[in-house]
Design a binder for these strands. Structure first.
Lengths: 229, 229
DNA sequence: TTTATTAATGTAGATTTTACACTTACATAA
DNA sequence: TTATGTAAGTGTAAAATCTACATTAATAAA
């Protein structure tokens, strides 16, 4: 019987996490220096093996936590990579996950202790196995996602300026956006609350701070929409 | 060592294929009646186990062929399902694949011999395991894909009428489209060749037949574009 | 009080999208 | 041969959206 369970092959199933972060310097990616063979010392995505009694989503969360100390990160599944020799040690299929986080909200010291490090996207080192490809695909997905869902929620501090939001979008899309058009498009979504408070860091005039309006934001998440930037 | 290969669990990895087809009656899905336990006799997606020396994409092709006789079908990977008890017999992670095919181009007799059957989407029976969810997600992906890539190529006969193309889009999107606006949008893509030939089946006047212009079509596939229907 | 710096703001023209109805071609039946 | 019925084919005007673009405003520092 072709389809009998007992005669089917079992394989190792891994999860690799592509963690994007944003700070005042732009879009970054979190990588670790492998502390085990093969490729010990080389840079890699944060990854590990799925356990028998574990759902993939949870494996991603556990592995991210194990290697970076990061907690409560919402990740989305991306793609299963299955080239025969992608891992030279043993046949391993890897499912990639990605997330967007606010670098400043997370303990940079902690991350460092785990030998994890943030790299500006453009300056990321070469990665082991097929991790470069995984990152490339994740960036594509991130850009696509940007066009159909509002983002920023996860990446900016609670209170942020229009300029910060603009720079976030510019970093993700890696292109310049017209400031006035951007602001009016964002405003037309009605997902921001303009505060009375100003941020005085950036200029003498100071710029208004905004927060996300969670309710409206969730509403937008439901009905797919297109944001043409 | 947390991350050692030898101590990691191995699991069964399956592939399930969501095959969409289109004919004059509308959008359909290909299902098989399981001829093995558990759930023998119930309807299910076409699925099977990944082999140790096989890439997922090829497993999907092999499995589809094994259970339906279908050949040369291009499938796209969708999502990995990993709920612990999704398969009651043994822990199995399943990666879903989907494809769009032209029902009339494929041997219906052959498919029947394999106990596979086409069901109109709306009339599909309840499926085993988490297959209903897989189908739901695949339909969503199909609709999304429709908005960013031209489709039809795979689903229509070589020569087809505008009405057929319109009906295909209406079936996938499950909404009515304005005939004139649809035609002018499609024409603006410049991916069709209008033939001198007419199809006389559908009306006394007869309607012009079209073919896809493969080159232009491939070109469009490269540059992502948005088709707002 | 002058200067320098970034924030904030509006509009006109171009493009795209939408809604909508009549004429044409032909086969069939009278 | 003529009349009739059926689906095919076609255009436009109004609305909405997108794009490009430049000046004034607020404030701190000199």
């Amino acid at each position: 019987m072709l389809n009998s369970y007992s005669s089917a092959d079992k394989v190792l199933l891994a999860v690799d996490c592509i963690i994007f972060g944003f700070d005042h310097q732009g879009l970054k990616i979190l990588l670790i220096q492998r502390d085990f063979e093969p490729e010990k010392g080389k840079w890699s995505l944060i990854g590990g093996f799925l356990k028998r009694d574990e759902v993939l989503d949870n494996a991603a969360i556990r592995i991210l936590n194990t290697y970076t100390g990061l907690n409560d990160i919402y990740m989305e599944q991306l793609y299963a990579y299955s080239e025969i020799d992608r891992d030279p040690v043993e046949r391993t299929i890897s499912v990639s996950y990605y997330a967007l986080i606010n670098i400043e909200n997370h303990n940079t010291e902690l991350i460092k202790n785990y030998h994890a490090e943030w790299f500006p996207i453009a300056e990321a080192p070469n990665l082991i196995f097929d991790h470069n490809e995984m990152v490339k695909n994740a960036i594509r997905r991130l850009r696509y996602r940007t066009s159909i869902k509002p983002i920023g929620f996860e990446l900016l501090p609670e209170k942020f300026t229009m300029r910060q939001l603009l720079e976030l979008y510019e970093a993700i899309l890696s292109k310049e956006l017209d400031k006035r058009n951007f602001i009016s498009k964002i405003n037309s979504l009605e997902i921001l609350n303009k505060l009375d408070e100003k941020d005085m860091q950036s200029s003498r005039k100071g710029s208004y701070l905004y927060t996300f309006n969670k309710e409206k934001y969730e509403e937008k998440l439901l009905n797919d929409f297109v944001l043409n930037l």
